[in-house]
Amino acid sequence: MAKPRVGIFDFTGCEGCELNQLNFEDQLLDILGHVDIVEWREAMDGQVDELDIAFVEGSLSTPECITRIHEIRRKSKVLVALGACAVQGGVNAMKNTRPIEEVREEVYGDQKYLFPTLPALPLSAVVKVDFAVRGCPMTQIEFLKVFTSLVMGKAPIEPDSAVCVECKLKENECVVDKGMICLGPITRMGCGARCPTFGQYCNGCRGLVSAPNIEGMQEILVEKGLAMDEAWKRLQLYNANQLEGVQR
């Protein structure tokens, strides 16, 4: 059987997720043993016409992005979103909470007409996304899980429970008990509760669980001593696109 042909692409983001792929020191040879990477701007030249798997990082924030993601989708059998920007819009989507003209002016001043800009969108807002590797940056363990699944020809299992689950499995002391404001209760697990395990609060980088009780989460944050608009900002950091229509 021919090895799957893989392309790696980037849109608006810090490229940290891609860099993370280059950091697989122990597994990179295994990865390359299973697939042919045929297109990757960050590590090689050239473009191809057909792909088995496209890994795509970054959010969509210009008209050019939209054209390009459609092209990638057209030539790829499976499309995997990598990291918070691609999966849910990420920190870029914070700008969506303000009028787009105001944002353009603030960034580009009177040159703004040279830089057409859109609200920052997750890939799924424009094309069909088959699977997601979440996090900011994406977690390596999860990437390997998704990768091995795809190479075996099975659909990766996407966890849909809260980060709290992984904290409890590790018997971590709850960081809320240490006086921190943590978004773990409604953030999707899969990172192994990395931040709380190291004594930090969860900032929701992996996006929310499906059917999240955002109102309930706001109440918790306020109860724990955050002012309502602070609570709202905390939620907006990585999940601005999911908050649309939620009662504040």
């Binding site: 990865i31 091995t148 429970s161 809260a162 409890k168 209760p185 409604i186 999240p212 009780n213 918790i220």
Partner: peptide, 24 residues
């Protein structure tokens, strides 16, 4: 908020899930 903490800290809860993991 459905985080499941109440189940996971309970000394009489015993439900479990089974999953296969494949090495790289």
């Amino acid at each position: 908020v459905g985080c499941g903490t109440c189940n996971l800290v309970c000394p009489t809860c015993y439900c479990f899930n089974v999953e296969d993991t494949v090495e790289i």
